[in-house]
Design a protein around this nucleic acid. Structure first.
Lengths: 193, 193
DNA sequence: CGTCTATTTGAATGTACTCAAAAGCGGTGG
DNA sequence: CCACCGCTTTTGAGTACATTCAAATAGACG
């Protein structure tokens, strides 16, 4: 996606004039990142929201026992970032890295607050963004507590047919909370039908 | 919690004058519900957000194979309801019932939209509510994909020490996505330490 | 006190994980 | 353009975690 299209979309969604969206985007840090490059490391004190203009990003975290887990994938026009860290100023619990060459805008805490206070329509914009994100998080929890691994995988490829083609299978397994070996076995079983 | 305290809290959180909060609360349907009484049934076409003044509610859903699952618990001052149904007008995927005698306000789609359009500060209020809800949903997903059943349980009683005392254990098991029998075994194991 | 539901227990089963090794695949340099 | 290297995926055997089913026990409430 190109910059002007991103601005158009944001303008339409938010009812904020394109020229004003542009003003705030200019205040954000724009970055082109290569495949596998990190834009946020776990523990970074400087926390930002990330708006993806093009490419594909992934958010991950770690636990001591089992290492890295994929928290979510982000595509064009999606937001990522550690909302909790943004909210209370703690260091980032998540890391964010590019799965494909990508272009992103980094909105730090200060800019986020500026946008919300200077332009009240951003309150509405983020209310809608968060409301929709909440819905999809709720659905994911529903699947987490009621689906088998196989069902989770089938639902995933149905929900994100594009993502599924791009990213390594082991990341899908991690996102679903299963091991890559077991996902491989699920796929073998499904293929034999 | 009493009505005037609820109004005070909402007013403080939202920066909206108490008298105006009161006006919208008066437009909502107020209901006292008995223990185990339902305020929303799965599939209900009339969908509402629920603001809990007192007591304890639980949101649940069903799948054909394993029956009912607890989606979440709601305490005083919390919101519940099917956001997706509110957003797109579909029938409710979730049911809501009282675990304790409770008092709730029901905000239907129409009133929700009225509040958002008439009083822009509600955009900010719900932006904050959703932002915080999103954070706790994200954390729950993190636990879902990276914790064992035992760890999930320990985290639960730490996060919700009050809820844990009130509600039947089988509902906690369901919330965590495990069977009541297995939770019982986890507790036995933990007790023997 | 009796009934109904929740919890506990145990045995058998199934689902998913670990570990180790082999096969596949993509990018890089010669 | 091919060969090699590193990483991902597959495979299989053994194990651990969690479920199912059935029955016994405990608790709550009228």
């Amino acid at each position: 996606m190109e910059r002007y299209k991103l601005i158009e979309s944001l303008s339409t969604q938010s009812n904020i004039p394109a020229r004003e969206i542009q003003k705030y985007l200019d205040m954000a840090e724009f970055r082109k990142v290569k495949k596998n490059e990190h834009i946020v490391q776990i523990g970074d004190p400087r926390v930002t929201l990330v708006l993806i203009q093009s490419g594909c990003m992934m958010t991950y975290f770690e636990d001591k026992r089992k290492g890295m887990h994929v928290f979510q994938f982000g595509m064009e026009m999606w937001w990522s970032g550690d909302l909790e860290a943004i909210t209370n100023g703690s260091p980032s619990f998540y890391g964010i890295k590019a799965i494909l060459p990508s272009e992103v805008y980094l909105i730090d805490i200060h800019l986020y607050n500026t946008m919300l206070t200077e332009q009240p329509l951003f309150q509405r914009y983020f209310r809608i963004i968060f409301q929709n994100a909440l819905i999809s998080h709720q659905k994911r929890i529903v699947r987490n507590i009621s689906y088998s691994a196989e069902e989770k995988y089938l639902e995933f490829i149905e929900l994100y047919p594009k993502v599924q083609l791009i990213i390594p299978q082991k990341y899908i397994a991690s996102y679903l909370g299963i091991t890559p070996e077991f996902l491989s076995k699920i796929r073998r079983k499904l293929a034999g039908k």
